[in-house]
Simulated assay, not measured.
Amino acid sequence: MWETGGYLGLFLSAFGAATLLPLQSEAVLLALLWAKQHPALVLLIVATAGNVAGSLVNWVLGRYLEHWRERKWFPVSAQRLERVQHTYHRYGRWSLLLSWMPIIGDPLTVVAGLMREPWWSFLLIVTLAKAGRYGALYLMTLGWV
């Protein structure tokens, strides 16, 4: 049970951390790595899968966000939305390599959906970014970097 709970907890924390919720998954990953009760590669895969799945939720939200643009409760002004769209056009899909970063990464995945980034390129680039972050964290944990 502990094994399943560890993986499930890591997946859920990584999923939540990738959404717009203010959560962190790194501490859970580090605790599980230090405990050495799970294969490290499996932990990295589970964390990456959870984080990418959360980012995909953001992408889906972005795809449908503009439908409510004219509503009073819409969280972004028209000018701000235009600026964001212009910036995404300027840097393109490769800006998704920054999706691992705190503060800007989660909104960036929403913007990618808003900008109609194809799901296949979104998943490829975001997976590379998220796996790279967790891989770097793993290497630093082991003292290899």
Rank of each mutant, 00 (worst) to 15 (best):
M1H: 15
W2Q: 14
W2S: 14
E3N: 13
T4M: 12
T4Q: 13
T4H: 12
G5Y: 11
G6R: 03
Y7N: 02
Y7E: 01
G9F: 11
G9H: 08
F11G: 06
S13Y: 05
S13W: 09
A14Q: 04
A14P: 05
A17K: 01
A18P: 03
A18S: 14
T19F: 07
L20T: 05
L21V: 14
L23D: 07
Q24S: 15
S25C: 11
S25F: 05
V28L: 11
V28E: 04
V28C: 12
V28N: 04
L29K: 10
L30G: 08
L30R: 05
L32H: 06
L33M: 10
L33Y: 07
L33E: 07
W34I: 13
A35W: 06
A35T: 05
K36F: 09
H38N: 05
A40K: 00
A40H: 01
L41P: 03
L41K: 10
L43G: 00
L43V: 05
I45M: 13
I45S: 09
V46F: 01
A47E: 08
A47G: 08
A49H: 05
G50C: 09
G50S: 11
A53N: 06
A53G: 10
G54W: 04
L56K: 08
V57N: 06
N58I: 06
V60A: 14
L61V: 12
L61H: 00
L61C: 10
Y64V: 01
L65Y: 00
E66M: 13
H67C: 01
R69N: 00
E70C: 02
E70Q: 13
R71W: 10
K72D: 15
P75M: 02
P75S: 04
P75C: 04
S77G: 14
Q79I: 12
R80C: 11
L81Q: 09
E82G: 10
E82F: 09
E82R: 14
R83P: 02
R83K: 13
R83N: 12
Q85D: 08
T87K: 11
Y88P: 04
Y88N: 05
H89P: 03
R90S: 09
Y91W: 15
G92N: 05
R93Y: 13
W94E: 10
S95W: 10
L97E: 02
L98S: 15
S99K: 00
P102S: 06
I103M: 10
G105C: 06
D106N: 12
P107I: 08
P107W: 07
L108S: 00
V110R: 01
V110G: 01
V110W: 00
V111W: 06
V111S: 02
G113F: 00
L114R: 01
L114I: 09
M115G: 07
R116D: 12
E117F: 09
P118A: 10
P118I: 11
W119G: 09
W119S: 12
W119V: 15
S121W: 13
F122S: 01
F122Q: 00
L123E: 09
L124Y: 06
L124G: 10
L124D: 01
L124W: 12
I125S: 05
V126S: 00
V126M: 03
V126F: 03
L128W: 07
A131L: 15
A131Q: 02
A131I: 08
G132V: 06
G132L: 04
G132Q: 02
G135R: 04
A136L: 15
L137M: 13
Y138T: 04
L139Y: 14
L139E: 12
L139K: 10
T141N: 13
L142V: 11
W144H: 15
V145E: 08
V145H: 11
